[in-house]
């Protein structure tokens, strides 16, 4: 409750939340606002914004840019959230094991994590999608595979820090089983930074997805923002609107999530939240 109240007083966090809510509403209402298929050619190609009944213009094949953006919202959010959930699951599991058990398990898991951080993630994602085939599921798999390492490192650091904390040791002395100790004392105290980093991971997942689609590696059946920019880039001299508007959609969505994440960080961060400490 305190957290919600503190967050409501965080101006940039609230701005982020507001933008994100608008994006969400658009995603939900997409079939109502633009019931026709965004791939459908509905008018004259190369129509500038506000002409021929196109709010944001039409593309090279006469498809409605606005319809593409609204429908693209669903793709971006779905991929961003799903791949982040998978990345959080992998990252928290690996980080928790490394941080809780320490020793050789930690050594091994951190070597693996380091390796994944050395490999250029985007190129790995390209390779994965190119090999497995460009489908929604494979894109999600590829993005989660390259997104988990920071979460694993963070979780490990938190677990390592908390495992040595005296209240955790006290719980063990009180006869709580290791699983109870982890679930009742370590995880709840580690969860805020994981939530914050998780929210920022959604943003970066959306960026990776858009870059993959831009390179022509998105799901060919899903209208996405990156694909729209990629398709329009060769005609940028004649038709700026085709690449400008989808880009703004990405920018605003990612910005909103980042602002929200920062707001969460400021309100959930123990340094600020528990000021009663001393």
């Amino acid at each position: 409750m305190d957290t919600i109240r503190a967050f409501s007083r965080h101006p940039s966090g609230m701005i982020g939340l507001a933008i994100l809510l608008v994006v969400l509403v658009l995603a939900v209402l997409a079939p109502v606002l633009y019931p026709e298929d965004p791939w459908e050619m509905v008018g004259r190609p190369f129509a500038p914004p506000l002409t021929d009944g196109f709010l944001l213009g039409s593309d090279t094949l006469g498809r409605d840019v606005a319809a593409g953006i609204i429908h693209g919202t669903r793709v971006s959010l779905t991929i961003g959230v799903t791949s982040t959930l998978a990345a959080v699951l992998i990252g928290v599991l690996i980080g928790a094991m490394a941080g809780y058990w320490g020793g050789r398990v930690d050594d091994f898991l951190m070597r693996v994590t380091e390796l994944f951080q050395t490999i250029p993630g985007f190129i790995l994602a390209i390779l994965l999608v190119a090999t497995l085939g460009p489908s929604l599921v494979n894109v999600i798999v590829a993005i989660s595979v390259v997104s988990w390492p920071p979460l694993a490192r963070l979780t490990r650091a938190e677990f390592l820090r908390l495992r040595g904390r005296e209240f955790v040791q006290a719980a063990a002395c009180q006869g709580e089983t290791p699983l109870q100790v982890v679930l009742r004392h370590i995880l709840p105290n580690a969860i805020s930074p994981i939530i914050v980093t998780g929210s920022l991971t959604i943003a970066s997942a959306i960026l990776i997805e858009s870059a993959l689609s831009f390179m022509g590696l998105g799901d060919p059946n899903a209208m996405s923002w990156g694909f729209m920019v990629g398709a329009a880039r060769t005609v940028i001299r004649q038709a700026w609107w085709m690449s400008v508007f989808p880009g703004i959609a990405i920018l605003l969505t990612v910005l909103a999530i980042n602002l929200l994440g920062e707001g969460l960080n400021d309100t959930l961060n123990p340094r600020n939240a528990r000021s009663g400490r001393h």
Binding site: A203, F214, G226, S243, L255, N258
Partner: peptide, 21 residues
């Protein structure tokens, strides 16, 4: 904050639009 939220390819295109075109 804004730079951090920008897709790289789009920023590139926008710069082309502004500084070249």
């Amino acid at each position: 904050l804004i730079l951090y939220a920008m897709p790289v390819f789009w920023l590139g295109l926008m710069m082309v639009l502004l500084f070249s075109v």
